[in-house]
């Protein structure tokens, strides 16, 4: 186990080092820069731009910039935003918290809706209940989340006036983004729960339990569901990674000040220090989530447990 941990940590550090170099270079090779309209006024003169680049050290070769940057990072200095001078540590705290609140709420919503419906669809297989649930799932996977967001905003904010259309961070403002972020996960989880239930509904142990005279609901909920949930739960790690991707879109639409919103904004505005830190943060998060997924999968299925 110790060697496994060491290997895994080494692998993650390797990926992070490579990604940090790639992202650092990539951001700087793209057309335009902080002085070319991203941060400065796009109409500012050539002299002002050059003075800005010189002051920020952006006129030096990229590798020099990288090593200076690395030096700061090693000393624990993440730098400040080029756009508004806020220390990145501060941004990190508030934005990470906002994203966690949104992501966990979405995860919770999707499980609370998907698992009961998936069980119901499996038990009532090929009835209208099943067809309705599966039809909903197909729709849930087909509707792009940003469009779903617009439609929900149209009905609940503009027409009915029940919920705010954007902003942070009161509970009413959380509802719409969380629902949108949960939509696809709900559909996928529902289909998985159903198919996993169907696989186990006719196992020998289930027949034995029925023969023993156990009430049907107990057979389903206490025995079949317990086995059927293993793959669903072990997929949570992967789901966390997917949520990061969707969060970029959903946070941007709802102006929810999370990590994804800030990353998209900083990439578009060429706010290099912010884009660097936040992209690496998300990469670490996804790597950890995938690692967690591996472990969870191994725990759920001892046959493939890692040595």
């Amino acid at each position: 186990m110790a060697s496994y941990l060491a290997r895994r940590t080494g692998y993650m550090l390797l990926i992070l080092t490579i990604s940090s170099v790639v992202i650092f270079y990539a951001l700087r090779t793209a057309p335009g820069g902080p002085s070319g309209g991203g941060v400065l006024n796009p109409l500012s003169s050539q002299e002002i731009r050059q003075a800005y680049d010189k002051r920020m050290g952006l006129d030096q070769p990229v590798y020099t910039q990288y090593f200076i940057y690395l030096g700061h990072i090693v000393r624990g200095d993440l730098g400040t935003s080029l756009a508004n001078g806020t220390p990145i540590v501060e941004l990190l705290g508030t934005h990470a918290r906002n994203s966690l609140v949104l992501g966990l709420t979405a995860l919770l919503i999707s499980y609370v809706i998907a698992i009961p419906l998936g069980v119901l669809a499996a038990v009532k297989r090929n009835t209208w209940v099943d067809q309705l649930a599966m039809g909903g799932a197909i729709l849930g996977m087909g509707i792009p989340n940003f469009w779903l967001a617009l439609i929900l905003v149209y009905f609940f904010s503009l027409r009915l006036g029940w919920l705010p259309s954007a902003g942070c961070c009161d509970p009413p403002q959380l509802i719409l983004p969380a629902l949108v972020l949960a939509a696809e996960g709900t559909a996928v989880t529902m289909r998985m729960t159903r198919s996993s239930m169907l696989e186990h509904l006719h196992d020998d142990f289930v027949r034995a339990l029925r023969a023993k005279g156990l009430p049907e609901w107990q057979v389903i909920l206490r025995h079949v569901l317990r086995n059927a949930l293993i793959p669903v739960i072990s997929l949570t790690g992967l789901r966390l990674g997917w949520l990061v991707g969707y969060a970029l879109i959903v946070e941007t639409i709802f102006r929810w000040p999370g990590v994804g919103y800030l990353l998209v904004d900083s990439v578009l505005r060429r706010d290099y220090p912010v884009a660097q830190v936040f992209s690496l943060l998300l990469i670490v998060f996804v790597l950890l989530a995938n690692w967690f997924a591996d472990i969870a999968y191994g725990l759920a299925n001892p046959r493939i447990r890692v040595a």
Binding site: G241, W242, G245, Y246, I249, L263, I283
Partner: peptide, 11 residues
């Protein structure tokens, strides 16, 4: 293992 949109935004 990486979400499509994240890689796309960075690229």
């Amino acid at each position: 293992g990486f979400p499509l949109i994240l890689i796309a935004v960075l690229l």
